[in-house]
């Protein structure tokens, strides 16, 4: 099995002494290339914390995370930022698109952060907007797009720098059921490939069918694991 993510003994707590609350109590995890992994569980179970620790934006108190054989928490903050930029794509629950920029400009952002010349970045961003079916909406600002379209723009922004790992935080939370299913179906069939893995944190049981594997979390621990051979 070709692993893209390995993590072991992840512990994360917030607050100190009497106020200390454990969000992760020793989590081990792996993700292989070509896999769509879901992390599910009730609110406060630690799934978002786990996603943040794995994707290099929240430092664990204990344990390690290796992505593409790089132990990410041994990198300094600017190396880690660069690593995220080159290897991880993020899709946030509320999309976090800049409302005053066009869809195209929102997608361009990761590329300009990578110092790619504007014209090249524009061309590449258009290509990825085309992949998500929004090339003809490229010049519109996000507030003129539907929720589903905004999510697609966010996906285009996440994949435009061609990362190997994509993390989705509650991707369907702001969408109606049908649109949510369509988006995830699209991601599963058009975005996921053998050279990429996707981790999705979700509550939405309607999209469980699209997962290869589902981890159930409770109280900061993985309680069980279900394989979906779909």
């Amino acid at each position: 099995m070709n692993l893209i993510v390995e993590a072991s003994g992840l512990v994360k707590w917030f607050g100190e002494e009497a106020a200390r609350t454990f969000a992760l109590r020793g989590v081990d995890l792996w993700v292989s290339y070509g896999e769509m992994l879901y992390v599910v569980g009730p609110s406060g179970s630690g799934k978002t914390t786990l996603l943040s620790v794995i994707s290099g934006i929240l430092r664990p108190n204990e344990g390690w995370v290796r992505i593409k054989n790089v132990e990410i928490w041994k990198l300094n903050s600017s190396e880690l930022a660069k690593f995220r930029l080159n290897n991880i794509g993020f899709v946030f629950q509320d999309y976090h698109l800049f409302p005053k920029l066009t869809a195209l400009e929102n997608v361009i952002i990761p590329l300009v952060l990578k110092n790619i010349p504007w014209e090249v970045a524009q061309e590449r961003a258009l290509h990825y907007l085309d992949i998500v079916g929004l090339k003809n909406r490229a010049t519109l600002p996000p507030y003129k797009l539907s929720g589903g379209e905004q999510q697609r723009v966010a996906i285009a922004r996440a994949i435009v720098s061609e990362p190997d790992l994509l993390v989705f935080d509650e991707p369907t939370a702001s969408l109606d059921g049908e649109t949510g299913k369509n988006i995830i179906s699209f991601v599963r069939h058009n975005i996921l490939n053998d050279k990429r893995a996707i981790i999705v944190v979700t509550h939405d049981t309607r999209i469980f069918d699209f997962a290869h594997r589902i981890l159930h979390m409770e109280d900061g621990l993985i309680k069980n694991e279900v394989n979906h051979a779909s």
Partner: peptide, 18 residues
């Protein structure tokens, strides 16, 4: 107004310097 967006940019890989 743009604080969350700046946070998102940080997550994506923008450094504090950027």
């Amino acid at each position: 107004e743009n604080l969350e967006k700046f946070g998102a940019l940080k997550a994506i890989g923008a450094t504090n310097g950027d």
